[in-house]
Design a protein around this nucleic acid. Structure first.
Lengths: 155, 155
DNA sequence: TGGTATAACATGGTATTTTATGGGAATCAA
DNA sequence: TTGATTCCCATAAAATACCATGTTATACCA
């Protein structure tokens, strides 16, 4: 039994005329391992699609039920938006999912999808938008290096 | 039953035409012991590849989850940079991993890889860049000897 | 201590498997 | 029927496992 389930790496796959895309094999492995499904929804903050395992959404739902103060009212509203928008995606025998028009349009994806790992979640970008976003992030880091607890101290 | 483990030493191995390199056997031993995997990503600050165990990243993911909330902007940026760039590497029966073009290019590695232990992490440099870097570090120490709380003694 | 046998390792090459992706047939719904 | 979705097959490319060899390090013995 594996202990770690992280969506990692950045993978570029093609979207064909029918709207089909290969889900990266690493991602597929996670879904199989957890015997769950992939869920996607429009990102609330960026022009991209966001995805995670259905497991995670269940956990989120459970958290909301059990605690009142952990999630602010705003976050509760956001959560509603996500649940309302989220759709389950299963992949066929060759590992492809079929994204909806709504999602593709929101992410401005036409023929190329960039899968970006985010640990428990992942994102799907158009090539153009991701290029810009990555640049923005690296600039930001240059000016203000974040301290990651688990990473310890170098230098 | 966590045995202590540290990535140590400096080891020079060849990179073949396919990008394959032998992971130092000491490193392999650690991976086996913890039954985890190696994860590599581009260093944010230096022209080198950085690596650690997937365990460590998993811990980081947990930290990020607990310290910020589901929709936080800081979490968003951080996770994109860290997990989006990191890639899992497993080694074959002869102990080799296959580094990607992206990583090799960032570290300016062509045919020789220098593994440098950093405790919980390690780095992979090109021979030229590591020579320079080591010199720089030793110069820096000479001019401004750091005070180590643990009372370290360098000859 | 010196010398040899043995094991571990790095590394080149090759074979096998996995994966991405295009196209078409079958299925289903409006 | 028509348009869309699912399923299946084919193929090329990429990743991975496997085998072989020379070299280095380690263990062993006189």
């Amino acid at each position: 039994m594996r202990k770690t389930f992280l969506f990692l790496d950045t993978i570029i796959n093609k979207v064909d005329a029918k709207g089909r895309v290969s889900l990266p094999s690493d991602y597929r492995a996670i879904v199989k391992e957890l015997s769950t499904e992939i869920v996607c929804y429009r990102s609330l903050t960026s022009p991209c699609i966001e995805g995670c395992t259905e497991d995670l959404l269940e956990k989120l739902a459970a958290d909301i039920e059990s605690s009142t103060d952990f999630f602010s009212e705003t976050q509760d509203d956001l959560t509603n938006l996500v649940f309302g928008d989220a759709k389950r995606f299963s992949f066929d025998s060759t590992g492809r999912i079929m994204l909806t028009e709504k999602l593709l349009k929101h992410a401005e994806i036409t023929d190329t999808a960039v899968f970006v790992g985010k640990g428990r979640k992942f994102q799907i970008w158009s090539l153009e938008n991701w290029t810009k976003e990555e640049q923005r992030l690296r600039e930001k880091i240059k000016n203000n290096r974040p301290s990651l607890k688990a990473e310890g101290n170098n230098d």
